[in-house]
Every structure is written in C-alpha cells, then in structure tokens.
C-alpha cells in the first residue's frame, strides 16, 4: 500500500529536481534555500539548541552566504554530516556549501576535487589532559591512551607525531564528541586530542573545566574553511567573497551596529564598494549590489561572529591568536575589494 507514497514522492522528486552540477547559484535561488553541511553538533561551531535552531561559528558563515544570495539569513537548511559523509554529500550535490571545520589539505583540494574558498579559522591539533596527571608537555605522553575523534585528519597527525618522537601510545577512536568526552572523563583515556578549538569547546562543557589543561604543543596546522564543489566558479566566488567581506568588514570597522549608517555613504571608497554604494561588485558576482551588506548585517562582521560564538566572553573562551586581523598580528587578511 505504501508503495504509492514512495512512487508519488519519486515522481514529484524527479520532476522537481533541477540540475545540480554546474549552476549552483541558480539552483539555490530557484529553491529559495541553501543547503549547508555542518557537524552533527560541536558547541560553538555548529550545534542545534533546545528549539532546533542552529547556531555557531560555522553556521554564521552559512547564514552570511544565504543572506548574500537569497537575502534571508534564515533561508538555510542545515544538513548534519559526519566525517565520513561530508565529502560525498558535497560531491553529490546534496549540500551546496560545506562549513564543517574541515581542514584544507592538498588531497582534498586536488584529488577529491573540492574548492576551499578561504580560511575562517586557523587551528591546530592539541592535547587535553587532566591536571592531576601532572603532564606539562606532549613529549611526556609516551605510553598514554589517547582518545581521538575519528573522521578527521587527527588520526594521521597523531600517528606522525608519536612516530617522530619515538613514543608508544594506544589510540581509542571515538565516533562522536559526546562519547569521547564520556570516555575521557571516566578515565578510559588519559588524553583527548582534536583541534585546539574543539578541545576548548569540549572543556567548556565540563563540570569543572579548571581540572583539565590543554598542553602547549600544537602538533599540526589545521586551516579550517568552507568548501564547495570544484568547477563551479561562480558559486565558489560568491562563497569566497562573502567570507572575505566578513573579514574585511572587521578590518574597516563595519559592524552590524553601524552598517546602516555606513551604508548612507562614507569617505572610504573601499567601504563604499563593499556595501555597494559605489561600483558594481555585486553585479560582477551575479548578485545585486547589497549582497555584502546583507551578509554582514546577518551576523555581524568576522570579529563579531567570533566573539559571539567562540570568543573569550563565551564559555568556550578562545582568544583570537592567529585568527586576529593582520593589522593585530594575526593571519586574517582579506584581499582588496576593487
């Protein structure tokens, strides 16, 4: 009996399905929503709250792109992906943009045919360990049992690090962050390793965060960024320049508070170009000229997004560090808008 439901759905799905391959922009505009791949739940980066509303650092990128393309930051369908499913989801067109703290590596870019549109967080793999073990350096971890969240580059970095330093260890691969926490807190592993930002987020959720220390060694470079399918340059450009607009907005002091005021027109041609009061950058992207205005308006500039989701005033409490603007000694450097 239920057969017909499926067949009905099938016909409808087949009839309404557009071509996903080359024209992501028009697909997204026809659909009216953007599908954005995120994690299955990492507090601060992407996690649903009790009402099912997604929020977080990566989520803000999705919302900014949706605001730029569709004019509505809430026109995003969040698709939770695991480390295993994220790349297929993107390659098969199930999602339009993957913002799931994904490390930009050579093979992912070249061999798996994806296009990283920039870096929204410079991260590195670190270790967290209970204070009572009295370990102060990762070089003292010989013989330890290490909990790893699988599906990331962490396993490889870990194997390399311990091999290089000629130490033994027992890896305990865990699928989800919640279970890794449980293992770590029960003492089933001595050390928990993942990206330093993830460690901070995890530690923030503990009952007594001060009982745990994050070791000073960062054993890998993990530039995290959103990515799109290879070969669809229009869409890639939109995502890339939306991210750049967020970063540039912080540099030029455009905030969600003063953006309406600045939009009236300023002395700075760069701000004017970003906000679309001068030039026609938006049209070149195939959008209107207010695209960046909407993107910034959605969640604020890069610095605001950082402060609101993972900054020092949040429980996660990450400092800007490498992610400060280049003018403050960080690596955030948006190319010029001209």
């Amino acid at each position: 009996m239920n057969k017909s439901v499926i067949l009905g759905t099938l016909t409808v799905a087949a009839l309404s399905a557009g071509m996903a391959s080359a024209q992501t922009v028009s697909d997204v505009q026809d659909r009216g929503t953007m599908n954005c791949g995120v994690t299955t739940g990492l507090v601060g980066f992407a996690a649903p709250d009790a009402n099912g509303e997604w929020s977080g650092f990566d989520v803000a990128v999705c919302r900014a792109v949706a605001a730029a393309v569709l004019g509505d930051p809430s026109a995003v369908e969040f698709v939770p992906t695991t480390g295993k499913t994220r790349f297929t989801a993107l390659a098969s067109g199930e999602i339009d943009l993957l913002a799931r703290n994904t490390t930009w590596t050579f093979t992912r870019d070249v061999d798996l045919k994806f296009e990283f549109v920039g870096i929204n967080y410079y991260d590195g793999q670190g270790f967290m360990i209970p204070k009572e073990l009295g370990v102060s350096s990762a070089r003292e971890l010989g013989g330890a049992t290490v909990c790893i969240q699988t599906g990331t580059t962490t396993e490889l970095n870990l194997a390399d690090y311990f091999r290089k330093n000629n130490m033994e260890y027992t890896p305990v691969p865990i699928e989800t962050n919640a279970e890794a926490q449980q293992q770590y807190l029960a003492g089933a592993c001595d050390v928990y390793t993942t990206d330093a930002s993830g460690l901070a987020a995890t530690r923030a959720a503990f009952e007594t965060p001060s009982d745990h220390v994050i070791l000073p060694e960062i054993i890998s470079k993990e530039p995290l960024g959103p990515l799109v399918r290879h070969g669809d340059n229009e869409w890639g450009d939109i995502a890339r320049w939306t991210l750049n607009a967020l970063i540039a907005a912080e540099e030029y002091g455009i905030t969600s508070a003063n953006i309406d005021e600045l939009k009236e027109g300023t002395d700075s041609p760069e701000i004017n170009r970003i906000l679309g009061t001068e030039g026609n950058l938006g049209e070149m992207l195939g959008l209107d000229n207010e695209w960046a205005y909407r993107a910034i308006k959605a969640n604020g500039n890069y610095g605001e997004i950082f402060a609101k989701n993972i900054g020092e005033s949040t429980p996660i409490g990450l400092s800007r560090g490498l992610n400060a603007q280049w003018t403050d000694g960080g690596l955030m450097y948006a190319p010029p808008f001209r």
């Binding site: 490889l156 390399d160 311990f162 260890y169 890896p171 691969p173």
Partner: peptide, 15 residues
Amino acid sequence: SGYDINQALLPYTSQ
C-alpha cells in the same frame, strides 16, 4: 595508511 590501530593481530604500523 598513516593511522595506528590499537589492536593488531598482524604486525602493523602507521606506515
């Protein structure tokens, strides 16, 4: 492979 396995019945390293 590049990763370690915590229980290997065959000789195995990350190489």
